[in-house]
Computed example of a mutant assay.
Amino acid sequence: MDKNEIMKRVDHTLLTQTATWEEIERICSQAIKYKTASVCIPPSYVKRASEYLAKKIPVCTVIGFPNGYQTTKVKMAETEDALKNGAEEIDMVINLGDVKNQQFHKIKEEIMQLKRICGNHILKVIIETCLLTEQEKIKMCQVVSESGADFIKTSTGFSTAGATFEDIMLFKAHVDSHVKIKAAGGISSFDDAEKFITLGADRLGTSRLVKILEAEQ
Protein backbone atom coordinates (compact mmCIF):
# COMPACT_ATOMS: atom_id res chain seq x y z
CA MET A 1 0.00 0.00 0.00
CA ASP A 2 1.26 3.46 -0.91
CA LYS A 3 2.57 5.46 2.07
CA ASN A 4 0.45 8.46 1.09
CA GLU A 5 -2.66 6.27 1.21
CA ILE A 6 -1.69 5.07 4.68
CA MET A 7 -1.15 8.66 5.88
CA LYS A 8 -4.72 9.55 4.87
CA ARG A 9 -5.85 7.17 7.63
CA VAL A 10 -3.55 8.53 10.34
CA ASP A 11 -4.67 10.62 13.30
CA HIS A 12 -1.31 12.34 13.86
CA THR A 13 -1.16 12.28 17.64
CA LEU A 14 0.52 14.15 20.48
CA LEU A 15 -1.10 13.66 23.89
CA THR A 16 1.83 13.77 26.31
CA GLN A 17 1.23 15.68 29.51
CA THR A 18 4.18 18.01 28.84
CA ALA A 19 3.29 18.90 25.23
CA THR A 20 4.14 22.52 24.43
CA TRP A 21 2.47 24.75 21.87
CA GLU A 22 5.64 24.62 19.78
CA GLU A 23 5.27 20.83 19.60
CA ILE A 24 1.55 21.02 18.83
CA GLU A 25 2.19 23.58 16.10
CA ARG A 26 4.81 21.26 14.62
CA ILE A 27 2.47 18.28 14.39
CA CYS A 28 -0.22 20.51 12.88
CA SER A 29 2.23 21.62 10.17
CA GLN A 30 3.28 18.00 9.61
CA ALA A 31 -0.36 16.95 9.31
CA ILE A 32 -0.88 19.52 6.56
CA LYS A 33 2.32 18.44 4.81
CA TYR A 34 1.51 14.72 4.86
CA LYS A 35 -2.28 15.10 4.51
CA THR A 36 -3.22 13.06 7.58
CA ALA A 37 -6.82 12.34 8.57
CA SER A 38 -6.56 14.61 11.62
CA VAL A 39 -4.37 15.80 14.45
CA CYS A 40 -5.24 14.32 17.85
CA ILE A 41 -4.23 16.71 20.62
CA PRO A 42 -5.04 17.65 24.25
CA PRO A 43 -8.28 19.61 24.80
CA SER A 44 -6.38 22.63 26.12
CA TYR A 45 -4.81 23.19 22.70
CA VAL A 46 -7.92 22.65 20.56
CA LYS A 47 -8.88 26.31 20.12
CA ARG A 48 -5.40 27.48 19.20
CA ALA A 49 -4.75 24.51 16.92
CA SER A 50 -8.12 24.94 15.22
CA GLU A 51 -7.31 28.57 14.48
CA TYR A 52 -3.83 27.64 13.26
CA LEU A 53 -5.07 24.86 10.96
CA ALA A 54 -7.96 26.96 9.59
CA LYS A 55 -9.94 23.86 8.47
CA LYS A 56 -7.00 22.43 6.48
CA ILE A 57 -6.93 19.34 8.75
CA PRO A 58 -9.62 18.27 11.26
CA VAL A 59 -8.81 18.64 14.95
CA CYS A 60 -9.46 15.59 17.10
CA THR A 61 -9.30 15.65 20.89
CA VAL A 62 -9.78 13.29 23.82
CA ILE A 63 -12.50 13.13 26.47
CA GLY A 64 -12.29 11.39 29.85
CA PHE A 65 -8.65 10.78 29.03
CA PRO A 66 -6.80 8.57 29.80
CA ASN A 67 -8.60 6.69 32.59
CA GLY A 68 -12.26 7.14 31.67
CA TYR A 69 -13.62 7.27 35.21
CA GLN A 70 -14.96 10.82 35.14
CA THR A 71 -18.72 11.13 35.52
CA THR A 72 -20.86 11.31 32.41
CA LYS A 73 -21.73 14.95 33.16
CA VAL A 74 -18.04 15.85 33.20
CA LYS A 75 -17.46 14.06 29.89
CA MET A 76 -20.47 15.83 28.40
CA ALA A 77 -19.10 19.21 29.49
CA GLU A 78 -15.67 18.35 28.10
CA THR A 79 -17.23 17.37 24.78
CA GLU A 80 -19.33 20.52 24.52
CA ASP A 81 -16.28 22.67 25.29
CA ALA A 82 -14.11 20.83 22.76
CA LEU A 83 -16.64 21.24 19.97
CA LYS A 84 -17.14 24.90 20.85
CA ASN A 85 -13.37 25.38 20.58
CA GLY A 86 -13.26 23.85 17.11
CA ALA A 87 -12.79 20.10 17.55
CA GLU A 88 -14.30 18.10 14.71
CA GLU A 89 -13.63 14.62 16.10
CA ILE A 90 -13.93 13.28 19.65
CA ASP A 91 -12.14 10.24 21.11
CA MET A 92 -13.77 9.29 24.43
CA VAL A 93 -12.62 6.78 27.04
CA ILE A 94 -15.24 4.47 28.55
CA ASN A 95 -15.57 3.85 32.28
CA LEU A 96 -13.66 0.58 32.64
CA GLY A 97 -15.04 0.08 36.13
CA ASP A 98 -18.48 -0.17 34.56
CA VAL A 99 -17.16 -2.95 32.31
CA LYS A 100 -15.80 -4.87 35.29
CA ASN A 101 -19.11 -4.32 37.12
CA GLN A 102 -20.95 -5.53 34.00
CA GLN A 103 -22.96 -2.31 33.91
CA PHE A 104 -22.98 -2.18 30.15
CA HIS A 105 -26.22 -0.19 30.04
CA LYS A 106 -24.39 2.69 31.77
CA ILE A 107 -21.59 2.62 29.20
CA LYS A 108 -24.05 2.55 26.31
CA GLU A 109 -26.04 5.45 27.75
CA GLU A 110 -22.90 7.51 28.27
CA ILE A 111 -21.76 6.94 24.68
CA MET A 112 -25.24 7.84 23.43
CA GLN A 113 -25.21 11.07 25.47
CA LEU A 114 -21.88 12.10 23.96
CA LYS A 115 -22.99 11.16 20.45
CA ARG A 116 -26.06 13.35 20.86
CA ILE A 117 -23.74 16.26 21.66
CA CYS A 118 -21.40 15.40 18.77
CA GLY A 119 -24.19 15.24 16.21
CA ASN A 120 -22.53 14.95 12.81
CA HIS A 121 -19.06 15.15 14.34
CA ILE A 122 -17.18 11.84 14.58
CA LEU A 123 -17.21 10.04 17.93
CA LYS A 124 -14.64 7.32 18.61
CA VAL A 125 -14.94 5.07 21.67
CA ILE A 126 -11.72 3.93 23.37
CA ILE A 127 -12.24 0.64 25.22
CA GLU A 128 -8.59 0.09 26.35
CA THR A 129 -8.31 -3.49 25.10
CA CYS A 130 -5.21 -4.33 27.16
CA LEU A 131 -7.30 -4.12 30.35
CA LEU A 132 -10.21 -6.26 29.12
CA THR A 133 -10.84 -9.98 28.72
CA GLU A 134 -11.79 -11.35 25.32
CA GLN A 135 -15.43 -11.66 26.38
CA GLU A 136 -15.43 -8.06 27.65
CA LYS A 137 -14.02 -6.88 24.31
CA ILE A 138 -16.73 -8.78 22.43
CA LYS A 139 -19.41 -7.27 24.69
CA MET A 140 -18.01 -3.79 24.09
CA CYS A 141 -18.16 -4.38 20.33
CA GLN A 142 -21.88 -4.97 20.81
CA VAL A 143 -22.33 -1.93 23.07
CA VAL A 144 -20.51 0.41 20.69
CA SER A 145 -22.45 -0.99 17.74
CA GLU A 146 -25.75 -0.23 19.49
CA SER A 147 -24.70 3.20 20.78
CA GLY A 148 -24.58 5.16 17.54
CA ALA A 149 -20.85 5.91 17.84
CA ASP A 150 -18.82 6.09 14.65
CA PHE A 151 -15.69 4.20 15.70
CA ILE A 152 -14.42 1.69 18.22
CA LYS A 153 -10.80 2.34 19.22
CA THR A 154 -8.32 0.00 20.86
CA SER A 155 -6.23 2.07 23.21
CA THR A 156 -5.23 5.36 24.81
CA GLY A 157 -1.53 4.62 24.48
CA PHE A 158 -1.21 5.40 28.19
CA SER A 159 -1.91 1.96 29.66
CA THR A 160 -0.09 -1.37 29.66
CA ALA A 161 -0.19 -2.02 25.90
CA GLY A 162 -1.44 -0.62 22.61
CA ALA A 163 -3.12 -2.02 19.53
CA THR A 164 -2.65 -5.64 18.49
CA PHE A 165 -3.50 -7.41 15.25
CA GLU A 166 -5.61 -9.86 17.25
CA ASP A 167 -7.78 -7.08 18.66
CA ILE A 168 -8.43 -5.62 15.22
CA MET A 169 -9.48 -9.05 13.97
CA LEU A 170 -11.76 -9.44 16.98
CA PHE A 171 -13.31 -6.01 16.37
CA LYS A 172 -13.85 -6.79 12.70
CA ALA A 173 -15.61 -10.03 13.59
CA HIS A 174 -17.92 -8.53 16.22
CA VAL A 175 -18.80 -4.89 15.42
CA ASP A 176 -21.71 -4.04 13.16
CA SER A 177 -20.82 -3.01 9.62
CA HIS A 178 -21.51 0.68 10.26
CA VAL A 179 -18.88 0.89 13.03
CA LYS A 180 -15.37 1.80 11.90
CA ILE A 181 -12.21 0.69 13.67
CA LYS A 182 -9.25 2.70 14.98
CA ALA A 183 -5.99 1.05 16.03
CA ALA A 184 -3.88 3.18 18.37
CA GLY A 185 -0.82 2.74 20.51
CA GLY A 186 2.52 1.27 19.50
CA ILE A 187 2.16 1.49 15.71
CA SER A 188 5.80 1.98 14.78
CA SER A 189 6.25 1.01 11.12
CA PHE A 190 4.53 1.30 7.75
CA ASP A 191 4.50 -2.50 7.50
CA ASP A 192 2.53 -2.74 10.75
CA ALA A 193 0.28 0.12 9.66
CA GLU A 194 -0.52 -1.64 6.40
CA LYS A 195 -1.30 -4.88 8.23
CA PHE A 196 -3.66 -3.09 10.64
CA ILE A 197 -5.48 -1.59 7.65
CA THR A 198 -5.62 -4.93 5.84
CA LEU A 199 -7.16 -6.52 8.96
CA GLY A 200 -9.88 -3.88 9.10
CA ALA A 201 -8.60 -0.69 10.72
CA ASP A 202 -9.99 2.49 9.14
CA ARG A 203 -7.87 4.86 11.25
CA LEU A 204 -4.47 4.65 12.94
CA GLY A 205 -3.50 6.70 15.98
CA THR A 206 0.25 7.28 15.84
CA SER A 207 2.99 9.89 15.56
CA ARG A 208 5.77 7.53 14.50
CA LEU A 209 4.86 7.27 10.82
CA VAL A 210 5.40 10.99 10.32
CA LYS A 211 8.74 10.70 12.14
CA ILE A 212 9.75 7.95 9.69
CA LEU A 213 8.83 10.14 6.72
CA GLU A 214 10.71 13.11 8.19
CA ALA A 215 13.81 10.96 8.73
CA GLU A 216 13.71 9.83 5.10
CA GLN A 217 14.06 13.37 3.78
Rank of each mutant, 00 (worst) to 15 (best):
T16K: 15
G162V: 02
Q142S: 08
M7D: 04
V10N: 00
E22D: 11
V143H: 01
E194T: 05
E214C: 13
I90H: 02
Y34D: 04
E22R: 12
M7T: 05
G119K: 14
L170V: 11
E22I: 15
H121L: 06
T198S: 11
P66S: 10
T71I: 14
E80R: 12
M92S: 07
R26S: 14
I212E: 09
E23F: 06
K182V: 04
K56M: 15
S189T: 12
A149G: 09
Q70A: 07
I57P: 00
K56C: 11
A77Q: 08
L14G: 03
N101Y: 09
I41S: 03
E22A: 13
E78R: 08
E134N: 15
R26Y: 10
S44Q: 09
Q217I: 14
Q113T: 11
K108L: 14
E214K: 09
L204D: 02
H105K: 13
K180T: 04
A163I: 01
Q113Y: 10
V10R: 00
N120C: 12
A87F: 06
I24Y: 01
K3P: 02
L15T: 05
K108I: 08
V59D: 01
E110A: 10
L213G: 07
F171Y: 13
M169W: 07
A49Q: 04
F196C: 04
N85Q: 15
L83K: 08
G186L: 04
E22Q: 10
K195N: 11
I212P: 02
A37C: 11
A215R: 14
Q103N: 15
Q113R: 14
E78I: 05
G185F: 02
A49P: 03
I117G: 09
H174T: 04
S207F: 04
D202N: 13
N120I: 07
L209F: 07
K33S: 09
I138E: 06
V59R: 01
A37E: 03
A163G: 04
S189Q: 12
V93W: 00
H12Y: 09
E25G: 06
A54Q: 14
L213F: 09
A82L: 05
K153M: 08
S147G: 09
R208V: 05
G64E: 02
A161C: 08
A19V: 12
V10W: 01
C60T: 07
A184D: 02
D167T: 07
D81V: 07
D98N: 14
K172D: 00
A54E: 14
V46F: 02
F190S: 07
E146C: 05
I168W: 00
Q102V: 15
P42G: 06
V143P: 00
K3I: 09
L204V: 09
S159D: 04
S38P: 09
